Computed example of a mutant assay.
Amino acid sequence: MLLWLRSALYMTGWALNTVLCAIGCMLALPLPYKARYAVVSYWSRFAIWWLALTCGLRGHIIGQENLPAQAAVVMSKHQSAFETMALQAMLPLTAWVVKRELLRIPFFGWGMWSLRPIAIDRANPREASRQLIQQGGAKLRSGAWIVIFPEGTRVAAGQRGRYKQGGARVACGAGVPVVPVAVNSGEFWPRNSFLKYPGEITISIGPAIPTQGKTPEQVSEAVEAWIEAEMVRISGVGPCWPKSRKPAEIHGSNALAG
């Protein structure tokens, strides 16, 4: 019962924060882009802080020193909504690759729309690929980091989706590195679950993968190999992980909303 109450309290605060920040983004439309970005960054930081306060669920970052000095393409494991907030709070300026239908969600989608994400139509793969490469290159040239989930959607803890090459194509076309990210958030915030379990989510940032002289296929394979190997290392510590698995040993520092 306490777990349900704490999760409900989190969602109530999250919803109120989302509505207020979405209104703030709309009011800030005539202002410079950075004003709207500051509002959404606040939304992410508040959501992470509120999650720690209400549910006892925090983030723990490993490998933040691996982030390049210049904008790059981040390709991350996706198990829950936590990493969308954490990456937004962690990176200096981001441009997200999202499903176009997300922009239709009241308040949440409106705030997302104000940041001019790369919104693709997954029903038209060829057009989505063209749009991703064209807009992604422009975003990188403007100094924004591209964040993409290569498996295309959230996957449950312990599972593995099919890695797509869109992010690698953008990086190769722009000549920027790819930063792989592994995260075990699904062990504490299960896919499509209302409940959030207390604990510490690990976000592991891998060494940047150069793209010069490589094909998108080679880059994508390197990203998948690093993420999945790292997932084996950091997985098995959360309350929702199958009990038959032996917990992994995790080292590192840098608390997120600790």
Results as ranks from 00 to 15, higher is better:
84 T>W: 04
70 Q>A: 09
117 P>W: 11
120 I>W: 06
87 L>F: 03
83 E>S: 02
175 G>K: 14
69 A>Q: 13
94 T>R: 08
95 A>Q: 05
65 E>N: 10
114 S>N: 03
159 Q>Y: 15
161 G>R: 04
171 A>T: 02
72 A>E: 03
110 W>R: 02
99 K>G: 03
129 S>A: 15
174 A>I: 04
119 A>N: 01
166 G>F: 11
104 R>L: 08
80 S>H: 12
102 L>M: 12
101 E>I: 05
169 R>I: 00
168 A>L: 05
182 A>E: 07
102 L>C: 05
129 S>G: 04
111 G>H: 08
182 A>W: 00
111 G>K: 09
143 G>R: 02
180 P>R: 08
69 A>P: 08
168 A>F: 04
170 V>N: 07
106 P>I: 08
76 S>Q: 12
62 I>E: 07
127 E>V: 06
144 A>E: 13
119 A>D: 13
128 A>D: 12
159 Q>E: 15
105 I>M: 14
176 V>M: 11
121 D>L: 02
78 H>Y: 07
138 A>I: 09
182 A>R: 07
135 Q>I: 01
93 L>G: 05
104 R>C: 06
180 P>H: 08
68 P>Q: 12
171 A>V: 06
183 V>A: 10
68 P>V: 13
182 A>Y: 03
63 G>M: 07
92 P>C: 04
152 G>S: 06
155 V>M: 14
106 P>L: 11
112 M>H: 03
134 Q>I: 10
134 Q>R: 14
178 V>N: 13
89 A>W: 07
119 A>Q: 14
72 A>H: 06
177 P>V: 12
76 S>F: 12
88 Q>K: 01
127 E>Y: 15
178 V>P: 05
161 G>I: 12
123 A>D: 15
82 F>S: 08
71 A>Y: 05
97 V>I: 10
141 R>T: 07
88 Q>F: 09
127 E>H: 13
125 P>I: 07
85 M>V: 09
116 R>T: 11
108 F>L: 15
159 Q>A: 13
146 I>Q: 05
152 G>I: 11
72 A>N: 01
114 S>K: 04
141 R>A: 15
85 M>K: 01
121 D>P: 07
73 V>I: 13
158 G>V: 03
122 R>T: 09
84 T>N: 08
136 G>P: 02
134 Q>N: 10
118 I>Q: 03
114 S>G: 06
71 A>P: 04
102 L>E: 12
108 F>E: 14
112 M>K: 00
93 L>N: 11
66 N>H: 11
165 Q>H: 14
119 A>T: 04
141 R>D: 14
141 R>E: 15
101 E>L: 00
67 L>F: 03
98 V>W: 10
103 L>K: 09
111 G>N: 00
91 L>E: 01
107 F>R: 03
144 A>M: 01
102 L>T: 10
154 R>A: 06
153 T>W: 13
127 E>Q: 13
103 L>Q: 04
